[in-house]
Design a protein around this nucleic acid. Structure first.
Lengths: 344, 344
DNA sequence: TCATTGGTGGATAGCGCTATCTTAAACTAC
DNA sequence: GTAGTTTAAGATAGCGCTATCCACCAATGA
């Protein structure tokens, strides 16, 4: 067996050719041995592995991407970094993908469809191996871009009710049911004038709103003046402002269901400041069970959402799709948990 | 002028060769025209630009990286995503680099030197164009790795006191001075038994601690029992625990300076819970001016740190280094701002 | 016995760019 | 006017890998 002798590279980098030479096989066989692609004689595989180890060979991702037309990174598009929610998901995704040898390229859309489209175009130029996006609401061009790219894509945070035949993959939970569950809990506490306070007004917030609406309507307790919706970004300060606004407009409100915990924390602090007793005079509830909600005065009732699990599960699903495996359950509902504390 | 005719690619991708053919120049000239590298006849540049636009040409980063031996991404290593601090910096860095056509590859070290080394090794294989790391404390192997790689590197959060001749670049502020400034403020409020409470105990936390120590020592008010140090991760709940612990051990404490706002927020909530009046009985101060600190009861005095500015400035510095420009001020101190609110 | 598989290793040919050298043209100096 | 010098465009040769086709050999069947 004669090995093709390659002249050593000018760059000084240890290349696959060096490994091939050292282990007395062709570079093609070395490549296959290291990647485990196609059948290769176990003895040769061992030899190549030893040589690679000895020489300290590390594959060049750029060369690999160019030749195979697939990079080893995954693009993830999330709306905001200032919402802990997405940071938790991102961290889990990153951790999982890193373990599988993929790089995570993050993009922040700021809830702007045009920005999302722009980001996606840029990301797709890099031929990502996979794609993770948030939710289902986006403009048609972006949807087309994803579909035509042929890049495996998993949708985060929401779940599609589907049998999977449409080739859509998602990992999340039902925000509408989450909204309904908390509303029912508040009703169960004897509350009758339950306000819904929301900021940002992204699709998932509106789904929670819808859960609240339907529940109140079914109980004959719905009143549009109980909706306090503000497109401003969600924050603790914003939650305080909304608390004051609601009490000025509707003094008979006996519960406020905030669409996110940071708002609710702001609401609790405002109540404390104004000397309004919680939950006696007004119950306060949040959503997501973010950091600090259990430390509030009183501790905040909320809906705990499985953010890390969403990240891990979606990353694993994506890895399966990248490998070309069929995914048994393409739309996974990870549910939520109603956490009742003293604020309700 | 005869153009080299390239057969069209099998992949269907619009390549530089297509642009070159369309604009009747060699692919080399097209490459140079689009990158603005070397002098090219303005008329040709215009022609190439038009052709590229018309064909919808987008360069392939993998091919570019392989040929030029430099990728278009920047690696950034930060300790934690759960601390808003770094998220703010990350977002600013990302935004700035994206505008310049670079991708941001994030790595989370979890404050672990070995993990940092491991991450760095992986990142360097991708031949990043630049590198951003947090602080100066790392193991020798990692330091060597950075130095030998030849990749431009900017250090975040801390500033080196240096004339720049050592080739180290940094953007941050003095944590020791920040710690000292807040301690002086507390002393100015008539406080005499000022405790310092810290979690995580990363290098920057210890620098703040040192600022507190030196200031108290200079005033003859230092007492080691006033140090409450816990390596557990920083969180609101942890701040509450520390508050109770301090009061059990040292009932005469009249101020607590927390090394981070989340701890301080937990402290304020604990005081509220225990009915201890702030700042009358005990003043509480934090660090960083994180989200919600201005909404606390009472609003939290803190040290505002320029996180976005650090991100933007460091990214711009790195861009300059990547371009091979000399950076006039290699170590930039962006300072901090003492924010006095009602908690002190 | 001879065509017919099925599986394994290798040679070849790029992937799409850019570094580098060469060449042609224009421009200086004496 | 010739030689020397600058300048811009082009030709060439990879960067380090993998897709793809080919050759080969053993095992199979008629």
């Amino acid at each position: 067996m004669v090995t093709k002798i390659t002249k050593s590279r000018a760059t000084g980098r240890v290349t696959l050719a060096d490994v091939a030479k050292e282990s007395q096989v062709s570079s093609m066989t070395a490549s296959r041995a290291l990647r485990g692609e196609r059948a290769v004689d176990p003895a040769l595989v061992a030899r190549v592995r030893v040589a690679a180890e000895m020489l300290g060979y590390v594959p060049d991702p750029a060369a690999r991407a160019l030749a195979s037309r697939h990079s080893s990174h995954v693009a993830i598009l999330i709306p905001m970094l200032s919402n802990t929610l997405f940071v938790d998901v991102l961290e889990a995704v990153q951790q999982t993908l890193q373990g599988a040898g993929f790089q995570t390229l993050m993009g922040v859309t700021h809830y702007d469809p045009d920005e999302e489209e722009q980001l996606l175009r840029e990301q797709l130029q890099h031929r990502p191996a996979g794609l993770i996006v948030t939710g289902f609401e986006r403009n048609e061009a972006t949807r087309q871009l994803i579909a035509k790219s042929g890049v495996p894509c998993v949708h985060l945070m929401e779940v599609l009710k589907s049998n999977g035949s449409d080739g859509i993959y998602s990992v999340g939970f039902s925000h509408e049911e989450g909204g309904a569950a908390m509303t029912k809990h508040l009703m169960g506490q004897g509350k009758r004038r339950i306000a819904f306070a929301a900021a940002q007004l992204d699709p998932r917030t509106l789904q929670r709103l819808e859960g609240w609406r339907q529940t109140l309507k079914a109980a004959g307790m719905y009143d549009p003046v109980l909706e306090c919706l503000d497109p401003a970004p969600s924050s603790i300060a914003q939650g305080g402002k909304m608390f004051e606004h609601i009490f000025k407009q509707q003094p008979d409100v006996d519960a406020i269901f905030y669409c996110n915990d940071d708002l609710a924390q702001g609401g609790l602090l405002a109540a404390l400041r104004l000397g309004i007793s919680v939950p006696k005079q007004v119950a306060i509830a949040g959503f997501n069970d973010l950091n600090g909600s259990d430390q509030m005065l009183p501790p905040l009732s909320t809906v705990r959402t499985p953010r890390s699990e969403i990240g891990t599960t979606s990353a694993n699903m994506l890895l399966a799709l990248i490998k070309g495996q069929t995914v048994p359950v393409p739309n996974i509902d990870l549910g939520f948990e109603l956490i009742t504390r003293e604020s309700t």
